[in-house]
Simulated assay, not measured.
Amino acid sequence: MKDPGLVMLRKSPYPYWFLIPGGLVFTVFFLVPSVMAFWFSLTRWTLFDQEFIGLDNYVQFFREPALASGLWHTLVYAVVTSGLKVILGMALAVLLTAPILGRGFMRSVAFFPVLVSTIGVGLTFQVLMHPTEGVINQILGWAGITGPAWLVDPDWALLSVAFVDVWQGVGLATVIYMAGILSIPGEYFEAAKVDGASAWHRFRRITLPLAKPATVSVILLSLIGGLRKFDLIWAMTKGGPGFTSDVMASVIYKQYQAGFYGLSTAGNVVLFLLVILIALPLFWFFNRKDDNQ
């Protein structure tokens, strides 16, 4: 016979009360603005009035000449930045979890760019990447290398911003990987050493597979951040030269600047759906692979 006290405890709504504050915050700051954004994307609106026009904003948005290139640039930017953050973050984490001299100081240095203002980083690298007077090309010149016109060359502008994004964000990826590596029991590495496994085999057979949750986190966070990136691109190139570094977020902002508020709202909804359509399948894919294991 079940204890009536245990049955009443299980049916008590008391634990769910703790969900109310989080639910209110989620509703006020995410759910309500999201619903309003969907509504305003169906209207032609200003600060003082609105007119319902159905899907006209979406039709016009997808007819924008800059949209196709902006979408392609967004995908390239997200893939390049997330890929480099995974590779460099893992490499730095392996180095900074090893018994090396000055490890604590190097960890601080690796994470410091994450704390710096993105606009400040963009303006600083705008000066450093000047094609003739920038420090980066001057250093390359001393080594006998002719540096590219980073931010004014159409072939380099988007990649230049992506490299700066990686420099600023790789510290966070490193911290996530460090947490994953340090959570691996040390006995695994000791046993591998006893069996004569080299450093490469220990990394490949132990570190890499057991740090997979960290890899999934870095991929998803970096990819979502890359798809939504705006502030660094705007600070460094404003989408130029021409439209060669325009991404979806900058295209949307330019429409807003031109006074097409409904059109820009529709663009934000499209960007939101794009992020969801890319991030959710990846999340399910990684979880499915874990479940099968």
Rank of each mutant, 00 (worst) to 15 (best):
6 L>A: 13
109 V>R: 02
114 V>E: 04
145 I>T: 09
138 Q>T: 05
217 S>L: 15
117 S>A: 14
236 M>W: 03
104 G>Q: 10
191 A>P: 00
169 G>T: 03
178 M>Y: 06
33 P>F: 04
37 A>V: 11
257 Q>N: 10
234 W>Q: 11
261 Y>P: 00
9 L>K: 13
186 G>Q: 09
57 N>F: 10
288 R>V: 01
173 A>F: 09
69 S>W: 00
107 R>T: 10
67 L>M: 14
199 A>C: 03
194 V>F: 05
46 T>L: 07
178 M>G: 06
85 K>D: 08
25 V>Q: 02
198 S>K: 03
30 F>A: 10
230 F>V: 03
128 L>R: 04
77 Y>G: 00
23 G>K: 08
168 Q>N: 01
126 Q>K: 14
212 K>N: 10
221 L>R: 05
7 V>S: 08
38 F>S: 07
16 Y>I: 09
278 I>H: 02
280 L>G: 02
265 T>D: 11
42 L>G: 13
127 V>Y: 14
209 P>D: 09
46 T>F: 08
277 L>D: 00
270 V>G: 04
7 V>H: 01
219 I>H: 05
134 G>W: 10
39 W>P: 05
75 L>M: 14
279 A>N: 09
160 S>D: 08
60 Q>R: 15
98 A>G: 08
267 G>N: 11
210 L>A: 08
203 F>S: 09
231 D>S: 07
93 A>S: 12
19 L>H: 05
96 L>E: 04
101 L>C: 06
136 I>M: 05
66 A>G: 03
184 I>Q: 07
120 G>F: 02
143 A>N: 05
270 V>S: 05
145 I>D: 06
240 G>C: 03
195 D>S: 11
124 T>H: 00
235 A>Q: 00
53 I>P: 06
201 H>K: 13
145 I>P: 04
207 T>I: 12
122 G>R: 00
30 F>M: 11
25 V>N: 03
93 A>K: 06
251 V>D: 00
98 A>S: 15
93 A>H: 08
189 F>G: 04
276 I>N: 10
227 L>F: 13
198 S>L: 08
121 V>D: 01
78 A>W: 01
172 L>R: 04
